[in-house]
Write a protein that binds this DNA or RNA. Structure first.
Lengths: 161, 161
DNA sequence: GAAGATTGATTCCTCAATCTTA
DNA sequence: TAAGATTGAGGAATCAATCTTC
């Protein structure tokens, strides 16, 4: 026998719904826009670009696979498939890891670095036009703050396992 | 011969970078979390759920395919494939359109309605816990406002074609 | 057995081509 | 010819299973 009543659903208030639907829609529209733009200008997907940027910001243009997966918040198998494809395109190479022979380093190639350096300004411009030219200073700060809070809470939860 | 110097890239300022990276990460983390949660609890993907919700909010639980595509901001072929799968699972049915024989209505089945009604409270709770329990009133309003602005600008641009 | 990573099957998304009716 | 919609092929993402080294 149940000792407590089933918890009644707390639906979203009108203002919460407005925020949530807005966020969902911004996501869909913005992603689609940036993806198309990047593909048109550079022959890279956002996924490709994300990997390249991450690598390019690390010492010697290289990272351990798992480290990269964590940075991108990707499943490791997704990353593995992605890296295989990028390898055949000559954007990255796999390097054996000396001290831990299970693991591997992913290294940006010359072509990979040239590609990301060519793509970055174009992508930044697209982001600027779509987002930062449109938002006020306060809105920008608020976006940073609220993103940090949501991510922080979720990661704190995930730590309780 | 070029008459103007190549436009120098206006990189993101520190605060803009913070906001942008935060947003990207929130996206990744939040999507992954909500997707997993919904799948675990209901055997529905976010894509499935989105379609069901949209239909359930329209008169007679039905919509024209293109109308649905626009509401979800999806490519029509993606939607078509998705609907085919959902049809085989018995969540929706296709109904011929009387006045325009090219088109079709998508109709929520009984099972579809039951499914979305069971899933909705669970999903809302997940969203509330991850987002709205964490944000202040001002942040919620700001999220709504900034989303609206970004979407508005992008759609205004798209109209210039 | 667990950690680091890959593979294969399946599902899902995108692009271009197609089909039918307006 | 265009609008509403589907199809098929190929590329990308997920899940479970696997392989190797710790």
């Amino acid at each position: 026998m149940r000792l407590v009543a089933p918890k009644k659903t707390r639906w979203l208030t009108a203002r919460e719904q407005k925020a949530w639907r807005g966020y969902i829609r911004m996501n869909a529209v913005l992603n689609a826009h940036l993806e198309r733009d990047l593909r048109r200008e550079t022959d890279l997907s956002m996924a490709d670009f994300g990997v390249l940027v991450e690598l390019s910001e690390h010492p010697s243009d290289r990272m351990r696979v798992l480290e990269l997966a964590k940075a991108l918040q990707w499943e490791k198998s997704r990353l593995s498939h992605q890296l295989t494809r990028m390898q055949t395109r000559g954007l990255v190479t796999r390097i054996e890891c000396e001290d831990d022979r299970r693991g591997a380093w992913m290294q940006l190639t010359k072509k990979g670095r040239a590609t990301v350096e060519a793509a970055a300004p174009l992508h930044v411009s697209a982001v600027r036009r779509a987002v930062f030219d449109v938002l006020s200073r306060d809105e920008v700060d608020s976006l940073a703050a609220l993103s940090g809070r949501v991510v922080g809470a979720l990661e704190a939860d995930a730590a309780d396992d």
